[in-house]
């Protein structure tokens, strides 16, 4: 069972299940850089996933489906921003409320438009993103199994990480986002409107989340299923947090979370009860969070001690 072919196809499946996490970790990264934690990527993904399936099913055009998905996700972002920054509802409370609204709302909309409360399979025949074979690499044995022939959105997500890195560290907007994140008052005094930056970062976030959602319903699967994100928004966010909001490091930590997901999928085939296996991604998320935070705590404590030692060691004049 454990030959090279098997390992290669397993690694390929890791990349397959990590793709939405790439998108989500970048989505939450941009709001974190602006100093906010976006707990509602899950609902943005749901909105985009359902809208993408429905619209591309009606128009039989992938492009319209994608555009509609992004618009739906952005609409969710605008609702959150309006409530949190204009009406001054607590951001976390807003996100929790929006998550529940979208979990119910997408089920409701699915019933209204597709007359089913569980999934849109067989009712809506939507377009899906195709696969792409990378030239040259597709001819290399083993490596081709791992890297080539994935869904187009997988490659888009990797490109998305590069774009996000460029946006955050190399553009004027990125500088402003980081400035607001570090100190909103200081940013304001230098003429940057924090609320405007919050809106912009949530809109960028919504585009990334939309692709993550549409990958789930139009790539990984070819239909929309009730509550189909099942915590991926939070897992992707945890990956970003463990990586301390560094774009490329977030990719690596996302792969770590994807690994446990893929492992769980693999173990579904064995005779361990599926319920026990399904717990794995969530439990491992909690464990990884605890370990990484403990390490961070110890390191910062050590740093603090070292600094205070320097202070006392200074010779008195």
């Amino acid at each position: 069972m454990f030959n090279l072919d098997f390992i290669c196809s397993f690694l390929a499946s890791v990349i397959r299940v990590t793709t939405p996490l790439f998108f989500v970790s970048m989505a939450t990264l941009v709001t974190r850089k602006a100093g906010l934690l976006n707990m509602a990527t899950e609902s943005m993904m749901l909105a985009a996933a359902l809208t993408g399936v429905l619209v591309s099913g009606w128009t039989q055009s992938l492009l319209f489906g994608v555009l509609a998905g992004i618009v739906a996700s952005a609409a969710v972002a605008l609702i959150i921003c309006y409530c949190a920054f204009k009406l001054k509802t607590d951001l976390y409370l807003t996100c929790i409320a929006v998550n529940t609204a979208l979990s119910g709302g997408t089920t409701f909309a699915m019933y209204v438009f597709a007359h089913d409360k569980l999934y849109t399979l067989q009712v809506v025949h939507s377009k899906a993103f195709g696969n792409w074979n990378i030239p040259f690499i597709k001819d290399i044995p083993y490596l081709s199994t791992i890297l080539s022939g994935h869904n187009i959105l997988t490659y888009v997500s990797i490109l998305g990480v590069v774009i996000m890195w460029f946006l955050i560290y190399k553009t004027r907007l990125g500088l402003r986002i980081r400035g607001v994140g570090e100190n909103p008052r200081a940013a304001e005094s230098s003429g940057v409107d924090p609320v405007k930056i919050y809106f912009i970062s949530f809109l960028i976030c919504s585009v990334y989340a939309a692709f993550g959602g549409m990958y789930m319903s139009m790539g990984y699967l070819s239909y929309f299923m009730r509550d189909m994100m099942s915590g991926r928004g939070f897992i992707g966010m945890s990956a970003m947090n463990v990586a301390n909001a560094k774009p490329f490091l977030s990719m690596l930590t996302s792969l770590m979370f994807g690994f446990s997901q893929a492992l769980a999928n693999l173990m579904q085939l064995s005779n361990i009860p599926s319920e026990a296996v399904s717990m794995l991604p969530y439990i491992s998320t909690v464990i990884i969070l605890v370990v990484s935070s403990s390490i961070r705590m110890v390191l910062s404590l050590r740093k603090e001690r070292a600094e205070s030692k320097d202070y006392y060691d200074q010779p008195a004049d």
Partner: peptide, 27 residues
């Protein structure tokens, strides 16, 4: 404890645990 001792956001940890508990009860 995760929130107050390790500064892990309680929404993330509680939602992850909720999924785990759901599958645990089913199991």
């Amino acid at each position: 404890l995760m929130r107050e001792k390790l500064a892990i956001h309680e929404i993330v940890s509680s939602i992850m645990l909720n999924f785990a508990l759901l599958y645990l009860t089913n199991y």
